[in-house]
């Protein structure tokens, strides 16, 4: 009877220990992870103007930013005297499928209050709205933001480029896809003034 009592106690103690150690280990790993994340350098590598960057699904090269009075590449100046910010860039789809999520490749950071959200993307080849990019066919694209009426135009534009990684099998459906979008580079572009009226 004493032997069995002792065995029970030993089992109880060992199982409690296992649970405790496991819990501590999990805690250590998660706090280590968050520490690592916090320690990550806040300075992103700088992206030079015109230099191509592989950002996972996209390859992009930022060219120039300037103020304009045109809301579209081939249109006349806006009748209400509105101003626009136009950003010129090259984008190539590096994935294996036609894609239209190009608007997520970069963000304006820090955000500029004068810029109205949801800029339009224009395919310069057609001077028409860009609706999708085919794999392996780079295109010159113009992004146009409308400036809030009466707002002072910003002097420079800082863009953070987001990268994604390809997973041949995701954890849920075992389907291929692009995941873990995170900032990988930053570029600061000077904003040129409105071009002289023709």
């Amino acid at each position: 009877m004493t032997v069995s009592w002792l065995a029970n106690l030993r089992q109880a103690v060992s199982s409690k220990l296992t649970i405790g150690i496991g819990g501590l280990l999990a805690l250590a790993i998660t706090s280590g992870q968050s520490l690592l994340e916090a320690l990550e350098p806040p300075v992103l590598p700088a992206l030079a103007t015109g230099a191509p960057l592989d950002a996972g699904r996209w390859r992009i090269a930022l060219h120039e930013a300037r103020l304009t009075t045109r809301s579209r590449p081939d249109g006349p100046p806006a009748p209400d005297g509105a101003q626009f910010l136009a950003l010129e860039l090259d984008i190539a789809n590096r994935s294996s499928e036609t894609d239209n999520t190009f608007a997520r490749t970069f963000t304006v950071d820090p955000p500029i209050d004068a810029l109205q959200p949801n800029p339009t993307f224009w395919l310069m080849r057609d001077k028409a709205m860009l609706s999708a990019l085919q794999p392996g066919l780079p295109e010159r694209v113009r992004v146009i933001w409308r400036l809030a009426p009466g707002a002072t135009a910003p002097e420079r534009l800082r863009l953070v480029v987001n990268g994604e990684t390809f997973k041949p099998r995701d954890n849920l459906f075992a389907a291929p896809g692009w995941f873990n979008r995170k900032p990988i580079a930053a570029a600061t572009l000077p904003i040129a003034a409105v071009e002289a009226r023709p």
């Binding site: 032997v3 069995s4 065995a7 029970n8 030993r10 089992q11």
Partner: peptide, 8 residues
């Protein structure tokens, strides 16, 4: 390993 007695 010791024998563990399990109650019925």
């Amino acid at each position: 390993m010791s024998e563990v007695v399990i109650s019925p």
